[in-house]
Design a protein around this nucleic acid. Sequence first.
DNA 1: CTGAAAGCGCTTACAG
DNA 2: CTGAAAGCGCTTACAG
Lengths: 338, 338
Amino acid sequence: MQKTIYDIAKAAGVSIATVSRVYNKAETVKPSTRKKVLQVADKLGYQPHVYAQGLASKQKNRIMMLVPVMSNYFLTEILRGTQDCLDNNKIELTIVNINSDEQPLPQVENIIKKSWAEGYILVSLHMSEAELESLKRYKTPISLVDDKSDHFDSVSFNNEEGAFKATNYLIKKGFKRIAFLSGKADSTPVEQRLRGYRKALSANKIAFDAELIITGDSMERDGFTEKSGYEAMKKILKLKHEAEAVFCTSDIKAIGAQKAMRESGIVLPIISFDNLSISDYIGLSTVSQPMYSMGFDATKNLLHRINHQNDEPTHKTHEPELVIRDSSEPVISKKEAI
Amino acid sequence: MQKTIYDIAKAAGVSIATVSRVYNKAETVKPSTRKKVLQVADKLGYQPHVYAQGLASKQKNRIMMLVPVMSNYFLTEILRGTQDCLDNNKIELTIVNINSDEQPLPQVENIIKKSWAEGYILVSLHMSEAELESLKRYKTPISLVDDKSDHFDSVSFNNEEGAFKATNYLIKKGFKRIAFLSGKADSTPVEQRLRGYRKALSANKIAFDAELIITGDSMERDGFTEKSGYEAMKKILKLKHEAEAVFCTSDIKAIGAQKAMRESGIVLPIISFDNLSISDYIGLSTVSQPMYSMGFDATKNLLHRINHQNDEPTHKTHEPELVIRDSSEPVISKKEAI
DNA sequence: CTGAAAGCGCTTACAG
DNA sequence: CTGAAAGCGCTTACAG
């Protein structure tokens, strides 16, 4: 049913080798026969079979992005960076979803072992160093985004510094009891952000109070959901020793938290993390991650790695920028604004 | 470097045919030799090479989802449905991004011609009937979501009815001058929603006023962005003959519109379209689309189609549900709430 | 500039 | 239950 290279060769009156060359090293075939072949191919709706090509050439001209797609707000931006980087290169991109309810390692291994692609971009997978090291045995190019490891090229974000800046900002505003609206406690970004939060407290000689570290009950997507933020905020509002402000580990959670605040009529200053495109529109103060650049850089890394397997891994850390909007400013000004 | 079936066969002391059988028809090989093979394979980190498998068997056990990933809020839900439907089946899923700045047809054709998968799910691609018909020549299973066509199985949404319900609700509340916050005018969903809006007007004997049909200037993603909603709302607020309420073609746009309203201090009742998960948290009244079910059904269709190429195409239309929250309720109650 | 032929890593009748 | 062999649709030295 599908046309093969034989059909085209026959119809064009050439050998299959020539047809193949038209697609691979066009310059080595006489313009007139190339034209003829292309014409026939177009008429018959022919396109080389990727599986056969990949098998015969051992080249795939394809990279794969492994990503917990549920983190889609993030993904969109990363993806834009990746695609812009891939532009002009004749490399194609395929996305595979990593189920975040299961261990990432076996899923990643299954994909890599099948030799789908020339290389793999792992987005926000946060595996342990030991797990990542175990991937080295496949000797396949791997590039990490939003994650850091000694074993592979990585493009990460300074979560600790971001949390520090946000917390420090609130402290400088005069707040001392700052709640830390957390996610799944052992998630890498949450750990790093907690560290930054604590650093800001110490830097300002404020005692750490474990009661202020609060998590929602929903743990879907590591607790990075509106629902989880809502639940956590409800708890924060019930604290006996009241919190004065909130540092929240993600914009999406902050949206949930804001609903809880509205319901209770108590609006605490809040700064969150990510700077999704909606955040600007709902006036959320937040720590901005340059997701586009991270996607771009990680892709550049991978392309380089594919051609230079033995270079030392490179590591780039993007620095946070604090974006102040309404949500972190004292309630007074909010009321006045109305 | 990568282990092949020959390595495993040799190490396990069997033929390559036996190794192959272990992976394909496990029940036909003696348990003890199967165990042996699996053991060796695991030790050597072997996994059949997908390209070779696909080529030899002409089966791919793989479907592909072609989607403008920029529509990511939508995608996440669709994807959940797809994955739940695929569960247990040993069919894998790959996602490919369709660049929404270019024509979808050539992109889709390129992918299909390469025979990547057993079948394809086309999400929100909105091609013309003629374009879709041209895809039939590839004789490959195709299933549409959020789109409708006579030529393929489709799972669509009753956009017209959704817009009708929303508009009618506002009219029943007593509003007569209702702005239609539009997207790219020739986008299929926009056209359908406009039709529903107009139907609601006629049903209530309200004259249609073209001045109330307003679009933002940003046309990225067919105008389905916060920015475009913001711009459009600014225009609505400047109308000489003022609008009393707004029907908005998407939640994301409504978020932009709400910012514009806050800035101007005029808050008009607004109902939008989609019911994203955030919408609940920001109190957006909206028309709910059952994206999960749509993803599930479209996948079921595709799996069926793969095994029954010649059945008549089936079409299912999901009906809208109006979800009323704060944003559509009179401004008074909003002020009281503070 | 072009063709004949070996090979990529599998699957699958066929034969036993 | 297992093996030898042909074939899937390509690419790529090699030879001319």
